[in-house]
Design a protein around this nucleic acid. Structure first.
Lengths: 210, 210
DNA sequence: GCAATTATCGTACGTCGTACCAAAAATAGT
DNA sequence: ACTATTTTTGGTACGACGTACGATAATTGC
């Protein structure tokens, strides 16, 4: 029944290899030749499994989205949305290239849709209009991406930025910034649950009151 | 006093040419050869004005940030933060490549710092700790970027996504999504002021109450 | 004039995505 | 068994990219 030369690999193999490279060396290290080398194939053979590189990234996103277990819907939107945000954060921390890959990307598969579905389910008890629910889910995803990006990048202070900020503060043109930096780190450190909780509660309650 | 052969162009000229290309044809169309051609220079001459392409993008971001007039600080954080968010949105709509360029980008210049300064100034009356103020500004920027990205991309429905969603809905596995889509567009359409207002109020009031 | 200095930009290298196509490996029909 | 058909493989090659290198040109200071 299966005519023609049998494939030596699978689409999943290709996508998984790409994800493995991106996880360790970043999305920039993902090239067709590199993937091919990793799975022991010729570069051009990959095009049997994937139409082009852009779609491959779409497939990468959808595939890792499938690795997240669905959240339990309790019926309390606060709890459920926070659980969803948490699982997204876990996913993005495991695959730090994800926030970079997300913008301008099409909805690519059932796993990505499943995420949206869960967001809508979490918001069901609010009785908000569907379009508002969609917005809230999108904004929540953006928030998590912003947070994780800052979280991952924030660990390494770039000396050249320190210099810029230092002389900016010294110039006296940025009094608020100077005061904030002088204040030091005695503020609470970034806490995902707190931030996400604020946003969720803020967005939904404001939406309900308008 | 200025020894050696005089420069035929300026850094601003190079950066502005790059911005012009990006505005019309997207960030992907910005190449060193293309910029050089636009300003009538050899490709390699650009390296007199800019260390490399990555820094050039940094300079692009900082330069357009300088085109935004500073907001008037009224002392009401709600008003001032919304004004800041609005001006950021205006900027991002005028330069749609900006949300794409933002993630993982270093603070590059005084104009970018000035934006941060304004955010801190707007939050001054709240009396929140500096680190919290910083977070709120960062999250607000992320929110605007998310919104504008959706706003700009949302105008063109991709047929291939419609097909995916259609069959997903037909499969019955996504009841919430199906219900939401069936509900149609009778919900209010995305309104930036409303969304930004929710988030600002939500974030700040929750921060104050915790 | 003559060095010293600085900018210009043609050439070239390595890397990328991927178009093209001959070779290889399987089945279906005879 | 053989042939025709179908499908995958992967080598070669093309155009575009960022940019290293270095010869050349244009300016100032002595």
């Amino acid at each position: 029944m299966a005519r023609g030369r049998p494939p030596a690999h699978t689409r999943e193999q290709v996508v998984d290899a790409a994800i493995g490279i991106a996880d360790v060396e970043g999305l920039g290290a993902v090239t067709m030749r590199r993937i091919a080398q990793d799975i022991g194939a010729g570069a051009m053979s990959l095009y049997t499994y994937v139409p082009d590189k852009d779609r491959l990234v779409d497939l990468m996103v959808d595939r890792i989205s499938g690795t997240v277990p669905p959240i339990a819907i309790t019926g309390d939107w606060r709890t459920d949305l926070l659980a969803l945000a948490r699982s997204q954060r876990t996913l993005m921390r495991a695959h730090p290239w994800l926030p970079t890959a997300l913008p301008n990307r099409r909805l690519t598969g059932r796993n990505t849709l499943a995420y949206l579905e869960q967001g809508l389910a979490a918001l069901e008890p609010t009785g908000l209009p569907g379009s508002i629910k969609m917005e809230i889910v999108a904004l929540l995803t953006g928030l998590v991406a912003t947070f994780v990006t800052a979280e991952v990048a924030g660990t390494t202070p770039v000396p050249e930025q320190v210099a810029l900020i230092g002389e900016a503060v010294a110039s006296g043109d940025f009094p608020q910034l100077a005061a904030t930096l002088a204040e030091g780190g005695q503020g609470r450190e970034p806490d995902f649950d707190r931030i996400a909780g604020w946003t969720i509660t803020g967005l939904v309650t404001q939406a309900l009151n308008s």
